[in-house]
Amino acid sequence: MKEFLFTDRDFKEIADLVYNACGIVLGEHKREMVYSRLARRIRERNLVDFKSYLAFLKKNKDQEFDAFINAITTNLTSFFREIHHFEFIKSELIPVLLKTNKHSKRVRFWSAGCSTGEEPYSLAMTLNAAFPSDWDVKILATDLDSNVLAKAQSGVYTAANVNGLSEQQLKRWFLKSKDGEAYKVKPKLQECIAFKRLNLLQEWPMKGPFDLILCRNVVIYFDKETKDQLFERYANILSEQGHLFLGHSESMGKEHSQYKNLGKTMYQKGSNARGI
């Protein structure tokens, strides 16, 4: 028998709240996950069941809603995850940007769903020294979850977190703790990154244009209508031939004719993009 009563009505109400807040679809297969994650909130608030927690949430939205959303959202990432994307940036995208942006000397990347920071830091490592020193190169890193965003900003990782990085990368970009169990990103790597909390379904304060948007393993949680709206908004904020990268289990329908499919979940905006 479970610790807290969790009815079908409770689950539906939670699923509706999450969908309306951030577009994430919680199917029946997510029920156990929802129970285990929100059970912690119920304990912390000294409540008796999910019904009482939902009542508390309604009365104390300003106080509790961020913690509620943080508990539900999933964050799984690693440095240089899906390495082919970073290889494309290094070998294909950077040489093109050096030519197309040579007059503005401005480059903008957006890690949309940056989680605990491994993605934007991997991007910063890839971009390092790729552009002349007088260029304005910036990375925007956003996430809905304020907890993981705080970890990303701190730039502190365990030895297990950095396991996939080479000794050269670790020495160049991280400060190692005396016991060897913690690694902190050096300030030099953080200089070009701005971490901001953002709900992708709400208004975006930035205007762009972005040369590349990484939205990997984010839209997998959205329904088709929400995905389509998001792809349209990304197209509007990308540069004329900007790129959009999705996660390995995500895809974009052919109806999005403003994008060309480059393969390996990489898409390019514009009529001159090379498709496959």
Rank of each mutant, 00 (worst) to 15 (best):
S257H: 08
N20V: 07
D49M: 07
E44A: 15
G247I: 02
M1H: 10
Q258V: 09
L170W: 03
N199K: 00
Q190R: 15
P95R: 03
D143Y: 12
R81I: 09
F80Q: 15
D49I: 06
P132S: 14
K178C: 07
S251K: 14
K138C: 01
Y35S: 10
T7G: 09
D62A: 14
D16N: 06
V156F: 00
D134C: 13
S154L: 08
A15W: 02
V156G: 03
L198Y: 08
K105Q: 15
L262H: 06
L98W: 01
E232V: 06
N217D: 11
K176Y: 01
L201H: 07
Q229V: 10
K227P: 03
S111H: 06
Y234R: 11
R172C: 02
N46E: 15
R81A: 04
S122W: 13
V48D: 15
K260W: 09
G275Y: 13
S111V: 00
E232Q: 07
H84N: 10
A194C: 06
V162S: 02
E28W: 07
R40M: 14
A55D: 08
I220A: 12
K90L: 09
L76S: 11
K176D: 02
H243Y: 15
W110Q: 00
D49F: 03
S133F: 12
K184L: 00
P187W: 07
T158W: 07
G242Q: 11
I89G: 00
V218K: 01
L144Q: 06
W173C: 04
F131M: 03
A67Q: 09
I276Q: 08
A159Y: 05
G242E: 02
A150V: 08
M252K: 12
V96W: 04
K12H: 03
F88G: 06
G247L: 00
K90I: 07
F80H: 13
L244S: 15
Y157A: 12
S78G: 07
L238N: 12
A194P: 03
R43Y: 11
D145R: 09
N217Y: 15
F80L: 15
D16C: 08
S91G: 10
N101L: 04
L57G: 07
D136P: 08
G275W: 09
A273K: 09
